[in-house]
Nucleic acid binder design. Structure first.
Lengths: 156, 156
DNA sequence: GTAGCTAGATTGGAATATCCAATCTAGCAC
DNA sequence: GTGCTAGATTGGATATTCCAATCTAGCTAC
């Protein structure tokens, strides 16, 4: 997907493009998914995804730079200090992106398996769903939502 | 981002990966964004994004195959029949993905410009926001949402 | 000391994907 | 026939990804 040079061309005015600058490369979103699922170590990401270690090194660095992951030192008994990768607050705020991709895939790219992720209120444990709502709290079906260019990109 | 061979490795069990199979390549999401903004023609996409025409041809084909865009013939007076590309129902269902990327970028990759897109109920024109809610309609802040592996991927 | 172990990171080279400019295609106008 | 044009394709340079092999740096055991 988009990297820094793409952004250069598209312009920094669109925040979708700016998001893709951080999480738009191959593997990035899947790494974030694994992080949500509780994986923190280089080898866990590598083994879960089958991504090669050079790419993983690069993606982890981009995600750390982008504020999505945080390098946290840890030490297992009998081992030297190593680093693990944990979602930051900004990383956890990617939950809507994950949920949106998830439910689009379930609806439009069905598989024979069941749900691949379940979203919960971290406090109460209640299942939650992602949806559009108006200012007064009325839920609006996604198929009835359009979007238009905002002030940042009107002039293009 | 992820292509078919990536999916092969990660497995088709995760619907996030299956979504990325369609919209995960470079430029795909930006093309969809432009489609939401009303662009339909090859040259409009090319000129708005600055993407090269060979890539655009390829991405449009992938998006059509993936059911996101639909090729619609059109004819301008004095010209032969050509094709334009319109969002399908499945394509419009990507609005939550766009909105999620959009607001993450606005919150976490701020720019000096204003909002780059505004989301509205297509019927009433009311502004809408994307959020998690519980079954009984209570809105839950995104930072309080976690997700866990669902049945499809528990055994991995 | 030094040899062996291991998670994480780096390197080299092949395979792909992207970029960019130039070219082609196929109907319409004339 | 020639010229025009939106869309698509080609060729070659650059960049990214893949894959396997290798390196690094603390630890343990001796």
């Amino acid at each position: 997907m988009a990297d820094a040079s793409t952004i250069e061309k598209v312009g920094r005015r669109c925040s979708i493009a700016r998001s893709l600058e951080v999480i738009g490369e191959k593997w990035s979103i899947l790494i974030v998914r694994e992080a949500f699922w509780g994986r923190t170590r280089f080898s866990e990401f590598r083994d879960a995804l089958g991504v090669s270690s050079d790419i993983l090194t690069d993606r982890l660095a981009t995600l750390v730079e982008g504020g999505v992951l945080e390098r946290v030192p840890y030490r297992e008994s009998g081992s030297r200090e190593r680093y693990s990768y944990h979602l930051t607050e900004a990383g956890r705020e990617l939950a809507p992106v994950m949920a949106a991709l998830n439910s689009w895939g379930e609806a439009n790219r069905p598989s024979e398996y069941g749900r691949s992720a379940e979203y919960r209120d971290a406090v109460t444990g209640e299942a939650v769903e992602l949806a559009f709502h108006t200012a007064d709290g009325r839920l609006v079906d996604q198929s009835g939502v359009t979007f238009v260019r905002g002030p940042a990109v009107i002039a293009r």
